[in-house]
Design a protein around this nucleic acid. Structure first.
Length: 487
DNA sequence: ATTAGGG
DNA sequence: CCCTAAT
């Protein structure tokens, strides 16, 4: 590919330089666009940054956009979509020189310095001292730090006043870039109040420093605390945190930024539940899910072990907020396996949750809680409705579902709606019951029946004056006050 | 804060 | 389940 870029193809402004040969900064790039290009030439498809691109003198002016992209990748460890040549050059120059001072329009990088080609300085700068290795090392180092930091940086540059030496410059650029890319990708909608609430909640929990599972690796806290100028403001939009995952790419130890989402937590009260909280069900495999289901079937009495996770080993799989802190040490796969093996304690606490990632049509992925309704829960719901009437869900929740910290009143309502639908849909024909292919939810017919009865009663109760006309407008207050279960 | 509905 | 509009 690189041969397709003849020297003449570039602007004519440069070619004479090489002929002068006085210093020869651009010589190598022209022989083979980049030193080592021949050795790596076949693998243009390689997805990992090729640091050999950074060796030796770099004459950015002679590079095609494609090559610039490669250099960019080698420099920053990530791809860019920017097509602007000048931008790329400047950007790379800034990255390599670790400085913003790249006012020049032609770029030759050498020994960590920017060399202007028709400048006498170039001549004086010929001494190739001990620059090369330093360059490569420096790049890698910067990259590392950069990713670490930018992972903690919220996308709105709250860190602009952070001082961490020269690297700050670089980091801000990185985040700015990242933000730009994402903006181009998609404009996410503003988070709702609830999102923000729960996020901050999750964070405060994090800070409250509960003694979490044994394997919690701290690692990130100290750094992050430095990185945030304003921790309170740290919550990024749409509830995502950017973390880095250590990729073992070709032994380079490159850190690839990836996006996690903090677990959303429903429980707002019930502190005891929170205390018993423990991470579980992370990185489950398909077989594991099955296991979980079996257990569920055998003793579907507590709401704790209905875990349904997608069988993916992707990093965003990790459910709990500990994800934010566990990386570096354990690769995602490691973690998944460990956790998978030690799936623990389906004992009946009503507190833990789990997260499922749901692919969105727009390409995004979002996580949602999912907790299968157990039979006991359904029963409680049903007789809760029978007692207090459908619609009085806050009541039902408070009285009949006190022990279940999840299951908001809205959940109850939704479930009831679904039950109604199910009960009315399936009953007419008995065949319907048999025809269900999914072993998912047996749906005890008895309950369904009861649901239907209740539903009818509710319906009648809410239409008082049409019936016998005896009780309608008399007693307490509203018509809803009637309690079908007792009347 | 709760409810009712739509998605 | 999630998200919103109405109360």
């Amino acid at each position: 590919m690189q041969e397709t870029v003849p020297s003449g193809a570039k602007s004519s402004s440069d070619d004479h330089v090489t002929q002068s040969g006085r210093v020869g900064e651009c010589l190598k790039p022209l022989d083979g666009p980049l030193e080592g290009g021949s050795s790596t030439s076949t693998g243009c498809i390689s997805s990992k940054p090729d640091f050999s691109k950074l060796k030796g003198e770099i004459c950015l002016d002679n590079l095609s956009i494609k090559e610039l992209h490669e250099v960019f990748k080698a420099t920053f460890g990530r791809d860019t979509t920017v097509k602007d040549k000048l931008w790329l050059k400047r950007r790379i120059a800034m990255g390599l020189t670790n400085s913003c001072d790249v006012s020049a329009t032609t770029f030759v990088i050498k020994d960590n310095k920017l060399v202007k080609k028709d400048n006498e300085d170039g001549f004086n700068n010929v001494n190739l001292g001990a620059g090369k290795e330093h360059l490569a090392v420096a790049v890698e180092y910067n990259e590392d730090l950069l990713n670490n930091l930018s992972s903690q940086i919220d996308e709105h540059q709250t860190t602009s006043e952070v001082r961490l030496g020269n690297n700050v410059v670089e980091n801000n650029f990185a985040s700015e870039d990242l933000a730009a890319d994402q903006r181009a990708a998609k404009r996410v909608r503003k988070p709702t109040k609830r999102y923000i609430e729960e996020l901050s909640e999750a964070e405060s929990k994090e800070y409250s420093g509960r003694s979490i599972a044994s394997t919690k690796s701290i690692g990130f806290r100290p750094l992050s605390s430095k990185a945030h100028a304003r921790p309170a403001r740290n919550v990024s939009l749409e509830g995502r945190t950017v973390n880095t995952r250590l990729d073992s790419l070709g032994g380079f130890g490159i850190q690839v930024p990836c996006v996690y989402r903090i677990r959303r937590s429903r429980p707002r009260k019930n502190v005891t539940a929170l205390l018993k909280f423990h991470p579980s069900g992370m990185g489950m495999t398909a077989t594991f899910i099955k296991k979980g289901f079996d257990v569920h079937g055998s003793q579907m009495d507590n709401g704790s072990m209905n875990k349904v996770l997608e069988a993916k080993s992707t990093p965003e799989q990790a459910p709990e907020q500990f994800v934010a802190e566990s990386k570096k040490e354990t690769t995602p796969t490691d973690m998944g396996q460990n956790m998978g093996l030690k799936y623990v304690d389906p004992s009946g606490d009503t507190s833990d949750d789990n997260v499922v990632t749901v692919p969105t049509a727009k390409g995004g992925i979002r996580r949602k809680h999912h907790r299968a309704w157990t039979l006991s829960e359904v029963m409680k719901l049903v007789d809760g409705v029978s007692k207090y009437g459908a619609g009085r869900w806050s009541e039902i929740k408070r009285l009949a579902f006190a022990s279940y910290s999840y299951r908001t009143s809205v959940d109850l309502k939704d479930k009831w709606r679904n039950l109604l639908k199910a009960s009315f849909a399936q009953t007419p024909t008995d065949k319907g019951a048999n025809s269900r292919k999914h072993p998912s939810m047996p749906i005890p017919a008895s309950i369904l029946l009861r649901v239907r009865e209740l539903a009818e009663m509710q319906a009648q109760a809410s239409l008082p004056n049409l019936s016998t006309g005896k009780l309608s407008a008399c007693g307490g207050r509203s018509v809803n006050e009637t309690r079908p279960g007792y009347l």
